[in-house]
Each structure stands twice: as structure tokens, then as C-alpha cells.
Design a protein around this nucleic acid. Structure first.
Length: 490
RNA sequence: GGGAUCGUGGGUUAGCUUGGUAUACUCACAGCCUUGGGUGCUGUAGACCCCGGUUCAAAUCCGGGCGAUCCCA
């Protein structure tokens, strides 16, 4: 049944596309109507509105505090990078060149050397790390910057998922040994994982990128992958062990205890506002945005419901609730707008993603109770007024658990095994999700699948010595050396 | 990278085939009304994506651009 013809006027205030059937359009509508972001006048760019930015701030606050307690310091490097710097690491040039935006003029004068708008900052940060590193006593050196980068891809804009400019953090570290650098790589990957598990209510899978898809110039790229409800995988964060290649290119060396010059092992790791795209896509529904309480700008909305003769007592009661919750540190708003009826408010706060609603009418006032409603499923519960904060916090925890459980079920149901071209293609085509199969390690076997169904190897098991799931490659039949996870991806 | 669809007040949309004063709802604002799922009334304000062509006349037809969405790779 189509709602195109009979969209009621009332509904056009809310979401008119269905998540299940029109995922792309639904997503665009949620982002705009929940006031998260808008399109910029140039293709590929977006404007992030205060509600959207508030979500990013939650991501920042969490990650930033974890970084700081694990030895990372924030710094800031220029947005523009001289071409000669970029060129010092040839793989970086090759990997990013097609999507670098160049500044060629300052005012009316052509620059002697054109400047790259950073697509990532290894090439300007590493030289400075080299300057600051003299001896093993200066190591490890851990820097992070919160900034935006530009990658001039000619693909369709999808707010947060795919934009030419995006906000992220990029961490860059230098270490004495491969072991330390590898440990660093994993520390950051685990922190990304924690962000998804504990803050964004999204289960993830950790893995390694195949060689042909790793960070240009790096040794190993690890990834946090999140499975979206439409069966596509989202690369939700990456952490790279860069080996000594970058250190060599930019002279990042140190004197060890025996006064010998040694080359550093470096890492870099980044997480972008894609995380928000994943968050929105994962939890939201046909009513609009759904947010876990951890990041919701308003965790609770109190909606008063009154009649002429009960107005004052209901509002008084609500104001008390509001004051109490606020004092207990709950992010709460009281929607006491006079000109809107409760139904309108319910819909509006649901559209905006507020996780818990407290409804208060004369009944609640008389019985000294509160009615709590969970955003994800509309479940209603009643609690004593005296237990306000506990009941509210329980409800918030329950909402988080529900969101996580739903996402987890989606992930668990959508990891499948297949062997043979037909089976791999068929499974991917029918179900989406991840398809595990043996892999010989040859890129052309991936290409074969990619050409037919636009799915690629999104990850390999994190542990390199993991026994392959099949003895032979699921595509060509040669001996398998790895287990490959095929999926369509964002 | 290839193909398709689309672009009208802040949001949703009618009008386009057959060229001539642009439709309605909603939001916003002012006032009244008053509330257990998008309430009712009155008033105000607000739009044809851009450039070019055809024409007496273009939202409408033609060409190009820009932007969005979808499908395929």
C-alpha cells in the first residue's frame, strides 16, 4: 500500500517514508525533520544543526576522555598541507590523490606551491613528531586532533555517511617497537568498539581490512564494522598500524638506550561523524529519530495533560517532577507549551528521538504516580511519584537495553556462511548481511563478487592466524588462507 | 563510473500533457479557544533551483548547468 496518494496533511509534519522499503529517502527525511542536518548549497556538503552537533559532542566527550586517560594529548595542525609534504610518502599520494582538493590561489595571486586541503594529516603531523622526538625518553608520543578533512569523492551525498567534508578525530602516535605500536592500534580499536557498545547502543564486529583495502602506506588496517538494518556494513572506525614506512619518509627516528638511531613505529586512528549516520540508521523508525539516552540531548520529556479545572495542579506537579529530575542530573524538559495539545507533543518528541516520555494528567496527580513511556516501542509503565528518579533511570536503562538488543539480534541473524560463487551471490542477494567464506587472498576473487553484486570483503578476522572457515577459497576453489567477510557496504 | 526520476512559500503539495492572474493544507506570527495521540476559529506573512532559447506571453515547451533521490557497477 502506498501512502503517496493519501498522505494526510497531519502526517506530512512527520516521517512519510518507510524505513523498510525506502531506506534512503527515509533516512534523508529523518535527518532533516529531526533537525539534525541540512544540505549545503554545494553538493557533497552538509550543515549540521545544533541537535545534530549535540550528538557529535557526546561522541567527542566520551572518546576524548578515554583518549586522555590513556596517554593522548590534543593538538592542532593546519588544514592545508604543502604539496611537497604530501609527496614525501608516495603511497599517500597515490591513495588520496584522486580525491584531494587543492588551493591554488591566495587572493588574486597564484601560489608558488599549491596546498592540499587535508584528506588526512599524516604528512604534516609526522614531520613535527620527528622534530619533537629525540630519544627513547620522548616516546611514546601520542597526539590527537579534532578537525575536519576533505575528500573530493564524486558520489551522492548522504548526510553523515558520505560528505566531501567531514568531522572526525585523527590520532597519530609514535613508538619504539612494533609490539608497542600494535598494542596502541588495538587500544584505539577497543575504544571505538566501546563507544559503539556503551554509548551508541550498537554491537560491532572487529576485523582487519584485506591488503588491497588498507590505509595507503600502512601495514595493517583494523576496522570496527557495524551492520545496518538494510543489510549493509558500515566501516565505523579504523585504526592503523603503519609500520616504519611513514617514520622513514618523514625522518621520525630516536636514539635508543645504546645511542643507536632507530626508526619509530607509528599508528594512526580515526572515527568520524559517520558514527552518527550509523546511530540514526540503526535505531530510528517510521515515527522518526530514536536515540539512546546516552546521547539524547533531552533524555526525558514531561508532557502535561490537563483540563480547564485541573490545569494548575497538573502543571505544578510537572514542575516539581522537572525540578527533581533536573537536580538529579537527568537531562529533562517540561513541554508546557499552551498552544499544543498532548498528541501533537507526543508525535513531535518522538520525531526528535527523546527516549522516555513522562505523561502527567489529573489521574497521575491524584494517585501520586507517573506514567513513563519508552520511545522505541511505546511500552507504558506506571511508577510511584516517590520513586521518580529511580524509575526514570530504570526506564532510560531499559530503553538502552532494548535498542542494543534489537541491533544485536539484527547482527546475529545476519552472519551466514557460504561457499561457491552461486551460494555467495545468492546469500548476499537474498539476505544481505555478512557472508563468511574461505578466501585464497587474491583480490581478483573479490572483484568477481564485487562486479556481480557490489559486495566486497569488508573484513577478515582480527587474529591473523585464525583458521579459515573453509579449506578452499569460496570463489576460485584454491586453498584458503583466510576467512573473508563479504558484505555490501556504505 | 553508467542509467532513471525529480526540483513550486519553512514543510507537504495542485497546476505542466493543451503556455496567459499559481492551489490547498501545514508550520511561523497575532488573537481567541483548551488538551489522555498531530484540536477548532479569525487574521497576517511567505514560493515557481539557476542560465539561455522559442513565444506577444514560460512554473509549464526546448537546451545547458546545479542540486537531491533511486537503480546498476
Amino acid at each position: 500500500m502506498s501512502d503517496d496518494g493519501d498522505e494526510s496533511d497531519a502526517q506530512s509534519l512527520g516521517i512519510t517514508k518507510r524505513k523498510e522499503y525506502e531506506t534512503g529517502e527515509w533516512y534523508a527525511e529523518v535527518v532533516q525533520k529531526a533537525d539534525l542536518a541540512d544540505y549545503a548549497p554545494m553538493g557533497g556538503f552538509i550543515v549540521v544543526k545544533p541537535r545534530g552537533y549535540a550528538l557529535w559532542e557526546q561522541v567527542q566527550e566520551n572518546l576524548d576522555s578515554w583518549f586522555k586517560t590513556t596517554g593522548v594529548e590534543n593538538a592542532y595542525f593546519p588544514m592545508m598541507i604543502p604539496e611537497s609534504y604530501l609527496e614525501r610518502e608516495s603511497d599517500i599520494v597515490e591513495g588520496f590523490d584522486p580525491e584531494v582538493a587543492w588551493v591554488t590561489h591566495g587572493g588574486h595571486e597564484e601560489l608558488e606551491e599549491r596546498l592540499a586541503v587535508r584528506p588526512t594529516s599524516e604528512s604534516i603531523i609526522t614531520p613535527y613528531m620527528a622534530e619533537w622526538t629525540r630519544s627513547h625518553r620522548d616516546l611514546p608520543l601520542r597526539l590527537n586532533q579534532w578537525c575536519s578533512v576533505v575528500r573530493w569523492e564524486a558520489t551522492d551525498t548522504k548526510p553523515f555517511f558520505r560528505t566531501k567534508e567531514f568531522l572526525w578525530q585523527e590520532g597519530h602516535t609514535a613508538h619504539e617497537s612494533e609490539g608497542e605500536a600494535w598494542e596502541e592500534t588495538m587500544t584505539r580499536l577497543e575504544q571505538y568498539n566501546r563507544l559503539y557498545e556503551d554509548v551508541l547502543a550498537m554491537p560491532t564486529t572487529l576485523g582487519r581490512k584485506p591488503d588491497h583495502d588498507k590505509f595507503p602506506g600502512g601495514e595493517t588496517t583494523t576496522t570496527v564494522e557495524a551492520l545496518m538494518p538494510d543489510g549493509k556494513s558500515l566501516q565505523a572506525g579504523t585504526s592503523h598500524y603503519l609500520g616504519t614506512g611513514f617514520a622513514e619518509a618523514y625522518d621520525l627516528t630516536y636514539r635508543d638506550e645504546d645511542e643507536n638511531e632507530q626508526v619509530c613505529h607509528t599508528t594512526s586512528w580515526g572515527l568520524s561523524w559517520r558514527a552518527l549516520g550509523g546511530l540514526i540508521m540503526t535505531h530510528s523508525d517510521d515515527q522518526g529519530l530514536v536515540l539512546p539516552p546516552t546521547v539524547a540531548p533531552e533524555q526525558v520529556v514531561i508532557v502535561p495533560i490537563w483540563q480547564e479545572d485541573t490545569r494548575e495542579e497538573v502543571l505544578d506537579y510537572c514542575e516539581q517532577l522537572h525540578a527533581d529530575l533536573d537536580a538529579d542530573g537527568v537531562r529533562v524538559v517540561l513541554d508546557d507549551r499552551d498552544e499544543r495539545n498532548p498528541g501533537f507533543k507526543f508525535n513531535e518528541w518522538e520525531l526528535k528521538g527523546t527516549p522516555v516520555r513522562i505523561e502527567v494528567g489529573p489521574n497521575e496527580v491524584d494517585d501520586e504516580e507517573i506514567t513513563l513511556v519508552h520511545r522505541p516501542d511505546g511500552e507504558t509503565e506506571t511508577a510511584d511519584r516517590a520513586d521518580l528518579t529511580d524509575a526514570t533511570e530504570d526506564a532510560l536503562d531499559t530503553v538502552y537495553a532494548k535498542l542494543y538488543a534489537d541491533a544485536e539480534a539484527n547482527l546475529e541473524e545476519n552472519v551466514r556462511e557460504a561457499h561457491g560463487r552461486g551460494e555467495i551471490l545468492g546469500t548476499l542477494g537474498q539476505h544481505g548481511g555478512y557472508v563468511k567464506t574461505g578466501w585464497c587472498g587474491d583480490k581478483s576473487c573479490e572483484t568477481e563478487i564485487k562486479d556481480q553484486i557490489a559486495a566486497e570483503i569488508v573484513m577478515l578476522p582480527l587474529e591473523e592466524d585464525t583458521e579459515p572457515v573453509h579449506e578452499t577459497c569460496g570463489v576460485c576453489g584454491e586453498a584458503a588462507t583466510e576467512t573473508a567477510f563479504f558484505a555490501k557496504n556504505y
